[in-house]
Nucleic acid binder design. Structure first.
Lengths: 193, 193
DNA sequence: ACCTCCAGCTAATGGGTATTAGCCACATGG
DNA sequence: CCATGTGGCTAATACCCATTAGCTGGAGGT
């Protein structure tokens, strides 16, 4: 819900994202967010309608970006193995690159009020179903060997979410290393030839 | 921190665990917990010293149980492959069987005040290191093929945590199915022969 | 010069929260 | 049959929080 964000609004959203990541939505106060951008809590309302709206904007923006990258990754080829490979790479890179967003997106679903919660939940279900379908296609084509495509899809998705929890830009592994290694993990996991 | 829990205290802790799982620590009030056990909020203080203590007890009890099961699982054999296999099975079963505890344990670390937070964090690091060592032993013995034992260990741990997030006793997969399938995933992931 | 609006401020409002104080019914055990 | 402790209760305390009201200094346009 944002037509054309003023730079100030973007700055506020970014500060909120940092704080939501670190302390959680409930434990973050408008005063905290204000301090981060150098103004008092109530002044935030000159730019933003509510704390809840900040969370909604962060989470729906995140989800939209993830789905966009997923579709772009998967759209380039018809080969089932290559499609899953690209989907996993996009998934892992997204979670490494936007780890604060992904982290909050996973953890603060319960702080989201309806109807936003339902909407985001539905998008997440779509995303998971897409992975499951990718695995099933590979199995049907005889390229993967896995007894439960559903469990394999869950496992692959959870791998990416894990990355968002521990990845650090200045940590011991680069985004590329993690992406390549995790693609390899996923391929092994589904028993790709 | 509990010598001999009266049944009432256990009941309160269980109610708190349910609510922390569902709504989070910050969003759960003492009144909510009271309602679950049929008394008023302030009456809880006849059994429990504070809300924070409830969280500490839940999280440290959970961590102790996980480490105990891990040591028991790993202690029975010297074969590196079998050791990892058993560790993964214990990890997954624990997260399926105690999913509320594991879920809260993962999500509410930030609501834990020092020094408890540091203590639990240290135990988690130990647990992760133990998995990494298991993978490294397997690699050293020529039984696993994996370029980064650290990433493999993270991946395996994240798989289990994922289980705690989506597993349901009445869902489409039994604990046994999930445990066996996830052990298989982990073995494939480390390139076991 | 003046008007207007923007973006800040402080003060108030209307809640909610953990925890403590102090009271009371009742079961138990001498 | 009374004394005592247990485990409830309601009321009070002492916060904290999101949000709103109303004020103000100053920048830009006219």
């Amino acid at each position: 819900m944002s037509d054309a964000d003023s730079p100030r609004v973007a700055e506020i959203r970014s500060a909120a994202l940092d704080l939501f990541t670190e302390h959680g939505y409930e434990a973050t106060t408008m005063t905290d967010i204000g301090v981060r951008v150098g103004i008092r809590g109530p002044s935030l309302y000159k730019h933003v309608v509510s704390k809840q709206e900040l969370l909604v904007d962060i989470m729906s923006g995140t989800m939209r970006a993830l789905l966009t990258e997923h579709r772009r990754a998967v759209g380039g080829t018809d080969d089932p193995v290559e499609r899953l490979r690209r989907a996993v790479e996009a998934h892992v890179r997204y979670h490494a690159r936007n780890r604060r967003e992904a982290f909050v997106g996973n953890r603060e679903l319960r702080s989201l009020e309806e109807p936003h919660r339902g909407a985001i939940l539905a998008q997440r279900t779509d995303y998971a179903s897409s992975f499951q379908a990718l695995v099933e296609k590979g199995v049907a084509a005889g390229r993967f060997r896995v007894s439960s495509p559903r469990l394999a899809a869950y496992a692959i998705l959870d791998l990416g979410m894990g990355v968002a929890a521990w990845f650090r830009e200045d940590g011991p592994s680069t985004e590329n290393e993690v992406a390549w290694e995790y693609v390899e993990f996923a391929m092994r996991l589904v028993g790709a030839a």
